[in-house]
Design a protein around this nucleic acid. Sequence first.
DNA 1: GTCTATATTTGGATAGAC
DNA 2: GTCTATCCAAATATAGAC
Lengths: 204, 204
Amino acid sequence: MARVKTDERIVVAMTELLRRQGYAATGIKQVVDAAGAPIGSIYHHFSGGKRDVAAAALRRSGAAYGELVGMLLAPYDDIAEGIEAAFVSASETIADSGWLNMCPVGTVAGEVADTEPELRTIAAEVIDGWVEQGSALYRARGLPDADAHALMLAVVASLEGAFILARTQRSTAPILAGGRAMGAFARQLTAAAANTRSDTAAPA
Amino acid sequence: MARVKTDERIVVAMTELLRRQGYAATGIKQVVDAAGAPIGSIYHHFSGGKRDVAAAALRRSGAAYGELVGMLLAPYDDIAEGIEAAFVSASETIADSGWLNMCPVGTVAGEVADTEPELRTIAAEVIDGWVEQGSALYRARGLPDADAHALMLAVVASLEGAFILARTQRSTAPILAGGRAMGAFARQLTAAAANTRSDTAAPA
DNA sequence: GTCTATATTTGGATAGAC
DNA sequence: GTCTATCCAAATATAGAC
C-alpha cells in the first residue's frame, strides 16, 4: 500500500480541498486526513507548512491545465472555433460534475491576492504560463503578438469569471455566453489580421 | 459619536474585510474590532452570526454595484462604447487603489459556491439582479432579449475574472483585454440586430 | 440593548518517541 | 523518516452582569 508517495498524496488532497473550499477554509488536519497521513508528515515534506503545500498544489494544477489548453485548442485551425469549442466543453464538464470547481487557481488567486504575497506570485506565474502558451498558438495561426496576447488574456479572464458565475448560479449560461463573446473577439482579430496581410500583399 | 448605527457599522466592516480576505479568512473578532463594537453586538443584531453578517454585506454591495452599472452604461447610446468605457474606468480604479479588490461578491461567491448554500444563493440573486439591470439597458437600445441577456452575462463574468487576473498580476491588461472582447461581442450583436430590422423592413 | 467574561472547538505548528 | 501527543493561539458562539 501507499503506492503513491506521501508528499504527492498530500499535494493531491490539498488541491482537491482548495478547489472546493479555497485556501483559508482548508485546514492542515483536513488535508492530512484526506491524504491518510499523520500531521507530522506535512512538516517533514513541506517545511513551509500549509502555505508550502498550497504553493505546490497551485503549480501542479497550473501545469495540468496548461496541457489541457494546448490539447483543446490545437485541433482547430480556426481560432474562434477552437475557443468556442473549449468553452462548450468546459460548460459540459462543470455541469456533469454537479457544478464543482474545476481548478483551484482562480479561486485561490482571488482569495489571497491582497493577503498572501507568495501565493499571489505563484498564481501570477501559473496564469502567465497559460497566457504565453495560448498566445503562442494564436500567433502560429496568424495573429500579431499583441492581439494574440490580449485574446488569451481575455479568454482566461472570461473563463475564470464564468466558472464563478456558473457555480454560483448553477447554470452553464455564463460559460456559453463567454464562449460566444470570445468567439466574436477572435473573429474580429483574425479579420483584422487578414486585412493587414492583403493590404501588404496588394497595397492600394 | 456612534453617529452610524451599530448594525450598519458591522456590515460595512464586514464588507471591507470580505473584499480583502474573503469569507473564511475573515474573523468575527476582526469585524467587531473594525466596527468598534463588542462581540456580543454581532449576535444581538445578527442572530445568524458570521454568515448572517456576510449575507447582509453581500446584499449591500450588490445594490451599490447595481446602481453603478446603470450609471456607467446609461450615458452611452452605443452599447459597445458604454461597455468599453466601463472596463477602462474599472481598470483605472483598480490600479489607483493599489490593486485592491473592488467588490466582495465575486470573491466570496467563488469561495463558498460548494460549501455555503445560503451565501451561494444570495450571491446568485445579487448577480442575477445585475444581469437583469444590464440586459434591460441593452434591450432598450435595440438588442433582442436573448442577446441582451447573453451579453450582460458575458460582461459580468469577464469583469469578475478580469478583476482576479488584474489583482493577481498587478496589471490592467486583463481588464482592458476583456473590455475589447466585450466591445467586439456587443458590436457583433448590434450589427445582427440591425440586419434583422432592415430585413424585416425591406424583405427580399 | 451593551458589553465582558468565558466556554468550547479548531486552527497551525512542534517535540520527541520509535 | 514516521507518527503520536501536545502546545498555544485563535476561531465562533454564549451566558449573564450591567
